[in-house]
Design a binder for these strands. Structure first.
Length: 305
DNA sequence: GGGTAATGAATAA
DNA sequence: TATTCCTTACCCA
Protein backbone atom coordinates (compact mmCIF):
# COMPACT_ATOMS: atom_id res chain seq x y z
CA UNK A 1 0.00 0.00 0.00
CA UNK A 2 2.87 2.04 -0.55
CA UNK A 3 2.19 5.13 -2.51
CA UNK A 4 4.91 7.16 -4.18
CA UNK A 5 6.42 8.57 -0.99
CA UNK A 6 7.30 5.10 0.37
CA UNK A 7 9.10 4.07 -2.77
CA UNK A 8 11.21 7.24 -2.76
CA UNK A 9 12.21 6.47 0.81
CA UNK A 10 13.08 2.91 -0.14
CA UNK A 11 15.29 4.23 -2.94
CA UNK A 12 16.95 6.60 -0.45
CA UNK A 13 17.61 3.73 1.94
CA UNK A 14 19.22 1.66 -0.80
CA UNK A 15 21.22 4.67 -1.91
CA UNK A 16 22.64 5.16 1.57
CA UNK A 17 23.37 1.61 2.60
CA UNK A 18 23.76 -0.52 -0.54
CA UNK A 19 24.79 1.58 -3.55
CA UNK A 20 28.49 1.30 -4.33
CA UNK A 21 28.77 -2.01 -2.55
CA UNK A 22 29.04 -5.58 -3.71
CA UNK A 23 25.86 -7.37 -2.72
CA UNK A 24 24.72 -10.93 -2.30
CA UNK A 25 21.31 -11.45 -3.84
CA UNK A 26 19.25 -14.51 -2.96
CA UNK A 27 15.66 -15.72 -2.93
CA UNK A 28 15.04 -17.53 0.37
CA UNK A 29 11.49 -18.27 -0.79
CA UNK A 30 12.82 -19.63 -4.09
CA UNK A 31 10.52 -17.84 -6.52
CA UNK A 32 13.21 -15.39 -7.64
CA UNK A 33 16.18 -17.75 -7.66
CA UNK A 34 17.01 -17.37 -11.39
CA UNK A 35 16.90 -13.56 -11.16
CA UNK A 36 18.96 -13.55 -7.98
CA UNK A 37 21.64 -15.65 -9.70
CA UNK A 38 21.97 -12.96 -12.39
CA UNK A 39 22.64 -10.23 -9.84
CA UNK A 40 24.49 -11.76 -6.93
CA UNK A 41 28.11 -10.79 -6.40
CA UNK A 42 27.81 -7.57 -8.39
CA UNK A 43 27.93 -3.94 -7.32
CA UNK A 44 24.70 -1.99 -6.92
CA UNK A 45 25.22 1.19 -8.91
CA UNK A 46 22.06 3.26 -8.52
CA UNK A 47 18.72 3.21 -6.74
CA UNK A 48 15.87 5.17 -8.23
CA UNK A 49 12.13 5.57 -7.63
CA UNK A 50 9.66 6.58 -10.31
CA UNK A 51 6.19 6.78 -8.88
CA UNK A 52 5.50 3.41 -7.26
CA UNK A 53 8.26 1.64 -9.17
CA UNK A 54 11.71 0.98 -7.78
CA UNK A 55 14.70 0.50 -10.08
CA UNK A 56 17.98 -0.85 -8.74
CA UNK A 57 20.88 -0.80 -11.18
CA UNK A 58 23.62 -3.40 -10.97
CA UNK A 59 26.82 -3.93 -12.93
CA UNK A 60 26.64 -5.05 -16.57
CA UNK A 61 23.52 -2.94 -17.22
CA UNK A 62 21.23 -5.20 -15.29
CA UNK A 63 18.29 -3.60 -13.51
CA UNK A 64 15.98 -4.98 -10.86
CA UNK A 65 12.45 -3.58 -11.15
CA UNK A 66 10.24 -3.95 -8.08
CA UNK A 67 6.62 -2.93 -7.68
CA UNK A 68 5.21 -3.55 -4.22
CA UNK A 69 1.58 -3.70 -5.29
CA UNK A 70 -0.93 -3.70 -2.50
CA UNK A 71 0.86 -5.87 0.04
CA UNK A 72 4.53 -5.69 -0.71
CA UNK A 73 7.10 -4.37 1.74
CA UNK A 74 10.83 -4.08 2.25
CA UNK A 75 12.37 -4.78 5.65
CA UNK A 76 15.78 -3.27 6.34
CA UNK A 77 17.92 -4.99 8.97
CA UNK A 78 21.36 -4.63 10.42
CA UNK A 79 23.40 -1.44 10.16
CA UNK A 80 20.86 0.80 8.48
CA UNK A 81 21.00 4.59 8.19
CA UNK A 82 18.19 6.47 9.87
CA UNK A 83 16.10 8.45 7.40
CA UNK A 84 14.29 11.60 8.44
CA UNK A 85 11.21 10.64 10.44
CA UNK A 86 12.57 7.19 11.41
CA UNK A 87 12.18 6.18 15.02
CA UNK A 88 13.81 2.75 15.04
CA UNK A 89 17.09 1.48 13.68
CA UNK A 90 15.32 -1.08 11.54
CA UNK A 91 11.90 -1.28 10.07
CA UNK A 92 9.59 -1.83 7.24
CA UNK A 93 8.69 0.39 4.31
CA UNK A 94 5.64 -0.54 2.33
CA UNK A 95 2.46 -2.19 3.47
CA UNK A 96 1.49 -1.18 7.01
CA UNK A 97 3.33 -3.55 9.25
CA UNK A 98 3.87 -1.64 12.41
CA UNK A 99 3.84 -4.82 14.42
CA UNK A 100 6.55 -6.21 12.21
CA UNK A 101 8.63 -3.08 12.49
CA UNK A 102 8.43 -3.26 16.24
CA UNK A 103 9.17 -6.97 16.29
CA UNK A 104 12.16 -6.43 14.03
CA UNK A 105 13.47 -3.71 16.28
CA UNK A 106 13.21 -6.05 19.23
CA UNK A 107 14.88 -8.83 17.30
CA UNK A 108 17.66 -6.42 16.47
CA UNK A 109 18.26 -5.62 20.12
CA UNK A 110 18.23 -9.28 21.08
CA UNK A 111 20.69 -10.02 18.31
CA UNK A 112 23.11 -7.37 19.48
CA UNK A 113 22.74 -8.49 23.06
CA UNK A 114 23.39 -12.13 22.30
CA UNK A 115 26.13 -11.60 19.68
CA UNK A 116 24.16 -13.65 17.24
CA UNK A 117 25.60 -14.08 13.78
CA UNK A 118 24.76 -11.64 11.02
CA UNK A 119 22.76 -11.89 8.82
CA UNK A 120 19.65 -13.11 10.60
CA UNK A 121 17.68 -16.01 9.13
CA UNK A 122 14.85 -14.85 6.86
CA UNK A 123 11.41 -14.76 8.50
CA UNK A 124 8.37 -15.65 6.43
CA UNK A 125 8.13 -15.60 2.65
CA UNK A 126 11.11 -13.53 1.56
CA UNK A 127 11.13 -13.22 -2.23
CA UNK A 128 14.46 -11.43 -2.40
CA UNK A 129 17.22 -10.76 0.08
CA UNK A 130 19.90 -8.23 -0.82
CA UNK A 131 22.82 -8.23 1.59
CA UNK A 132 26.07 -6.40 2.17
CA UNK A 133 28.46 -7.40 4.95
CA UNK A 134 26.49 -5.30 7.42
CA UNK A 135 23.01 -4.64 6.04
CA UNK A 136 20.12 -6.69 4.71
CA UNK A 137 17.04 -5.77 2.68
CA UNK A 138 14.24 -8.36 2.59
CA UNK A 139 11.42 -8.08 0.06
CA UNK A 140 8.11 -9.86 0.48
CA UNK A 141 4.82 -9.83 -1.39
CA UNK A 142 5.74 -7.73 -4.43
CA UNK A 143 3.47 -7.66 -7.44
CA UNK A 144 6.47 -7.28 -9.75
CA UNK A 145 10.09 -8.29 -9.26
CA UNK A 146 12.17 -8.85 -12.38
CA UNK A 147 15.58 -8.32 -13.95
CA UNK A 148 15.53 -5.99 -16.97
CA UNK A 149 17.98 -4.66 -19.55
CA UNK A 150 18.19 -0.89 -20.21
CA UNK A 151 15.77 -1.02 -23.15
CA UNK A 152 13.17 -2.77 -21.04
CA UNK A 153 13.61 -0.19 -18.27
CA UNK A 154 13.11 2.55 -20.83
CA UNK A 155 9.91 0.88 -22.02
CA UNK A 156 8.50 0.86 -18.48
CA UNK A 157 9.48 4.49 -17.91
CA UNK A 158 7.76 5.54 -21.13
CA UNK A 159 4.44 4.27 -19.84
CA UNK A 160 4.64 6.35 -16.69
CA UNK A 161 3.28 9.83 -16.13
CA UNK A 162 5.40 12.51 -14.44
CA UNK A 163 6.62 12.14 -10.85
CA UNK A 164 7.04 15.56 -9.19
CA UNK A 165 10.25 14.48 -7.47
CA UNK A 166 11.90 13.40 -10.72
CA UNK A 167 10.22 15.73 -13.14
CA UNK A 168 9.88 19.22 -11.78
CA UNK A 169 9.33 22.38 -13.77
CA UNK A 170 6.83 23.54 -16.37
CA UNK A 171 7.36 20.60 -18.69
CA UNK A 172 6.15 17.99 -16.24
CA UNK A 173 3.27 20.15 -15.07
CA UNK A 174 2.23 20.69 -18.69
CA UNK A 175 2.26 16.95 -19.34
CA UNK A 176 0.02 16.42 -16.30
CA UNK A 177 -2.39 19.23 -17.15
CA UNK A 178 -2.72 18.08 -20.75
CA UNK A 179 -3.32 14.49 -19.72
CA UNK A 180 -6.06 15.60 -17.31
CA UNK A 181 -7.85 18.22 -19.36
CA UNK A 182 -7.92 16.17 -22.56
CA UNK A 183 -9.84 13.27 -21.10
CA UNK A 184 -13.48 12.70 -20.31
CA UNK A 185 -12.84 10.23 -17.46
CA UNK A 186 -13.66 11.41 -13.92
CA UNK A 187 -10.82 13.12 -12.09
CA UNK A 188 -11.12 10.45 -9.38
CA UNK A 189 -10.17 7.86 -11.99
CA UNK A 190 -7.47 9.94 -13.68
CA UNK A 191 -5.52 10.61 -10.49
CA UNK A 192 -5.14 6.85 -9.99
CA UNK A 193 -3.93 6.32 -13.56
CA UNK A 194 -0.15 5.95 -13.42
CA UNK A 195 0.20 6.99 -17.06
CA UNK A 196 -1.34 10.34 -16.14
CA UNK A 197 0.68 10.97 -12.98
CA UNK A 198 3.04 8.70 -11.06
CA UNK A 199 2.82 7.81 -7.43
CA UNK A 200 -0.71 8.73 -6.37
CA UNK A 201 -2.62 5.87 -4.72
CA UNK A 202 -5.92 5.47 -2.96
CA UNK A 203 -5.13 7.54 0.12
CA UNK A 204 -3.59 10.49 -1.67
CA UNK A 205 -6.37 10.43 -4.29
CA UNK A 206 -9.12 10.94 -1.71
CA UNK A 207 -7.15 13.53 0.21
CA UNK A 208 -6.03 15.57 -2.80
CA UNK A 209 -9.61 15.73 -4.08
CA UNK A 210 -10.87 16.93 -0.72
CA UNK A 211 -8.11 19.51 -0.39
CA UNK A 212 -9.15 20.84 -3.80
CA UNK A 213 -12.85 20.66 -2.81
CA UNK A 214 -13.40 18.73 -6.03
CA UNK A 215 -16.22 16.37 -6.81
CA UNK A 216 -14.49 13.11 -7.82
CA UNK A 217 -16.92 12.68 -10.72
CA UNK A 218 -15.86 15.90 -12.44
CA UNK A 219 -14.61 15.03 -15.90
CA UNK A 220 -10.99 15.84 -16.60
CA UNK A 221 -11.83 17.91 -19.65
CA UNK A 222 -14.20 20.04 -17.60
CA UNK A 223 -11.46 21.08 -15.19
CA UNK A 224 -10.15 24.63 -15.67
CA UNK A 225 -6.42 24.79 -16.33
CA UNK A 226 -5.67 26.53 -13.06
CA UNK A 227 -7.45 23.82 -11.10
CA UNK A 228 -5.43 21.14 -12.86
CA UNK A 229 -2.30 23.19 -12.15
CA UNK A 230 -3.11 23.35 -8.46
CA UNK A 231 -3.68 19.56 -8.32
CA UNK A 232 -0.16 19.05 -9.62
CA UNK A 233 1.29 21.55 -7.13
CA UNK A 234 -0.57 19.97 -4.25
CA UNK A 235 0.61 16.47 -5.17
CA UNK A 236 4.19 17.74 -5.35
CA UNK A 237 3.72 19.36 -1.94
CA UNK A 238 2.19 16.28 -0.28
CA UNK A 239 4.77 13.95 -1.81
CA UNK A 240 7.63 16.02 -0.37
CA UNK A 241 6.03 15.89 3.08
CA UNK A 242 5.49 12.14 2.72
CA UNK A 243 9.10 11.48 1.75
CA UNK A 244 10.36 13.73 4.55
CA UNK A 245 8.21 12.25 7.34
CA UNK A 246 7.55 8.73 6.10
CA UNK A 247 3.83 9.33 6.66
CA UNK A 248 0.99 10.30 4.38
CA UNK A 249 0.23 13.54 6.18
CA UNK A 250 -2.40 15.44 4.29
CA UNK A 251 -3.76 17.94 6.80
CA UNK A 252 -0.69 20.18 6.98
CA UNK A 253 -1.53 23.42 5.25
CA UNK A 254 -5.18 23.69 6.16
CA UNK A 255 -4.63 22.82 9.79
CA UNK A 256 -1.25 23.77 11.22
CA UNK A 257 -1.77 21.68 14.37
CA UNK A 258 -2.51 18.53 12.45
CA UNK A 259 1.10 17.50 12.02
CA UNK A 260 1.69 17.24 15.75
CA UNK A 261 -1.65 15.60 16.39
CA UNK A 262 -0.97 13.11 13.63
CA UNK A 263 2.19 11.99 15.38
CA UNK A 264 0.16 11.11 18.44
CA UNK A 265 -3.12 9.98 16.91
CA UNK A 266 -3.01 8.16 13.64
CA UNK A 267 -6.74 8.75 13.18
CA UNK A 268 -6.20 12.47 12.83
CA UNK A 269 -4.06 12.09 9.77
CA UNK A 270 -6.66 12.44 7.03
CA UNK A 271 -9.55 14.61 5.94
CA UNK A 272 -11.71 11.88 4.42
CA UNK A 273 -9.77 8.64 3.87
CA UNK A 274 -11.41 5.75 5.74
CA UNK A 275 -13.82 8.15 7.43
CA UNK A 276 -17.03 6.75 5.93
CA UNK A 277 -20.02 7.66 8.12
CA UNK A 278 -18.00 10.03 10.28
CA UNK A 279 -18.66 13.79 10.31
CA UNK A 280 -16.68 15.88 7.85
CA UNK A 281 -13.99 17.85 9.66
CA UNK A 282 -15.26 21.05 8.03
CA UNK A 283 -19.03 20.88 7.57
CA UNK A 284 -19.85 18.02 10.00
CA UNK A 285 -21.85 16.31 7.25
CA UNK A 286 -21.38 12.60 6.69
CA UNK A 287 -18.39 11.36 4.70
CA UNK A 288 -19.52 8.87 2.07
CA UNK A 289 -17.79 5.96 0.36
CA UNK A 290 -18.16 4.65 -3.16
CA UNK A 291 -16.06 2.41 -5.36
CA UNK A 292 -14.28 4.26 -8.15
CA UNK A 293 -11.52 2.78 -10.32
CA UNK A 294 -11.99 -0.48 -8.39
CA UNK A 295 -10.97 1.14 -5.10
CA UNK A 296 -12.83 2.65 -2.17
CA UNK A 297 -13.15 6.38 -2.56
CA UNK A 298 -14.12 8.53 0.43
CA UNK A 299 -15.42 12.07 0.00
CA UNK A 300 -17.63 14.80 1.40
CA UNK A 301 -20.64 15.43 -0.85
CA UNK A 302 -21.13 18.87 0.70
CA UNK A 303 -17.65 20.35 0.57
CA UNK A 304 -16.85 18.56 -2.69
CA UNK A 305 -20.12 19.40 -4.42
C1' DG B 1 -8.02 -20.88 13.73
C1' DG B 2 -10.80 -18.66 10.09
C1' DG B 3 -12.36 -14.69 7.40
C1' DT B 4 -11.36 -10.22 5.60
C1' DA B 5 -9.29 -6.06 4.17
C1' DA B 6 -5.23 -3.57 2.58
C1' DT B 7 -1.57 2.65 0.41
C1' DG B 8 -1.99 -1.93 -6.76
C1' DA B 9 -2.48 -3.29 -11.26
C1' DA B 10 -2.56 -6.83 -15.11
C1' DT B 11 -5.66 -9.73 -17.36
C1' DA B 12 -9.89 -11.90 -18.88
C1' DA B 13 -14.37 -11.29 -20.60
C1' DT C 1 -16.65 -5.39 -14.18
C1' DA C 2 -14.61 -9.48 -12.08
C1' DT C 3 -10.72 -12.30 -11.14
C1' DT C 4 -6.17 -13.12 -9.96
C1' DC C 5 -1.68 -12.35 -8.07
C1' DC C 6 0.56 -12.47 -3.19
C1' DT C 7 1.43 -11.57 1.94
C1' DT C 8 0.33 -9.95 6.35
C1' DA C 9 -2.34 -7.85 10.27
C1' DC C 10 -6.33 -7.59 12.57
C1' DC C 11 -10.66 -9.01 14.21
C1' DC C 12 -13.51 -12.45 15.73
C1' DA C 13 -14.32 -16.73 17.62
Amino acid sequence: MPEGHSVHRIAMQFDRDFVGKTVEVSSPQGRFSPGAALLTGSVMKTARAVGKQLFLEFEDERWLRVHLGIYGAWDFLGRISLLSGDTTASGSIGAPRLRRAVRMAETEREREASNEIFPPAPVGAVRVRIATATAVADLRGPTACEVLDPAQVEAVLNRLGPDPLNDSGPNAEERFVTAITSRSAPIGVLLMDQSVVSGIGNVYRAEILFRARLNPHTRGKNLPRDVADSLWSDWAHLLRIGVETGHMLTMDSLDPDAHERAQAHIDDRHWVYKREGLPCRLCRGEIIMEVMAARKLYWCPTDQA
